[in-house]
Amino acid sequence: MSLELKHCPILIAIALAAFLVLPSISLATEVLIFAIIALGCSILLGYAGLLSFGQAIFFGLGAYVASLSQIHLGVNFLVGLLIATAAGATVAALVGALAIRRQGIYFVMLTLAFTQLAFFVSYTLDEWTGGDNGLLDVPRNSVDIFGFEIAIDSSEKFYAFVAISFVLIFLGMIRITHSQFGRTLLAIKQNEERATALGYSVKWYKVLAFIFSGSITAYAGGMYALFLNFAPLSNVELIMSEHILIMAIIGGTGNVYGAVLGSLFLVVVGDMLSAFWERWLFLLGGILILTVFYMRGGLISGLYGVFEFLSQKFGSASTQKES
């Protein structure tokens, strides 16, 4: 309980600050959605130690399933997102269970192959996905409870919905990472052989990590499609997986707030830079390299470092005053 009490205000503050500080609502919406997506990647990489190029599968799947449910099933947007989440969990369990049968570079290559497969399947099934053109005109069907209608038909309302989702998903993931499951994942990441010898069925832990990661990524993918009213094919491209990875790594994968920083950095800096310098991805490549060499913990560790430095300075200054 104390965990929620501590983190809930921080998360609400982040959601409010994004709304108030960022130049546009759509930018703030995008930051929160991609923060969830980066968090999904961070669960795999930072906790289970799995470098996966498969996140675009869940992202694209969530977008397609949520969109198709709005178009063909006519269910409300909440149900649509829940179906997308369930689909994400199912496919993540499958992809995860297959991919973790191999380790190291072979694991990475498998996730890469699965993403390419997902891309070409989406491309081929153009009757459902719209192929190259993407799935256009995705509606947001309103929720109708006993004649009381909840619609997310304005960008403010949509932002409010995304913000609530953001807070709840982050609280859930904070709880999971602070659980014994989270601790066991860290143990497996540090020493898989020992964990196995101690009795842990390592593969099921990894599959469960995949399921959590895949579900929240698919949910966020669904929100992104509803946000754009559009589910483009580029959602399932390998390059999307790369961007998600880079976002998570630059933000820092050992801490849930790293995901927020990573998303903030990529979405906001990308938005600002691309206005006058279209090739800002060049910079991103360089930053990725520098992060790996000099700041493995990402921006979040840098931020903590600054805090520590300041508190030490402030702390020592105050003790000097006392003496």
């Binding site: 965990l3 709880r175 999971i176 602070h178 659980s179 014994q180 499951f181 989270g182 601790r183 066991t184 860290l186 143990a187 540090q190 020493n191 020992r194 964990a195 101690l198 009795g199 842990y200 069925s201 099921w204 832990y205 469960l208 959590f212």
Partner: peptide, 29 residues
């Protein structure tokens, strides 16, 4: 588990004999 404390190492070891405790993802560690 080199990044964990001695006690945490032993806790992980002790829980390894249970087949489900490591999967408890909703209650705090």
């Amino acid at each position: 588990f080199l990044e964990m404390t001695v006690r945490e190492n032993l806790q992980i070891a002790a829980l390894g004999v249970s087949s489900i405790d490591g999967f408890r993802f909703w209650s705090s560690s």
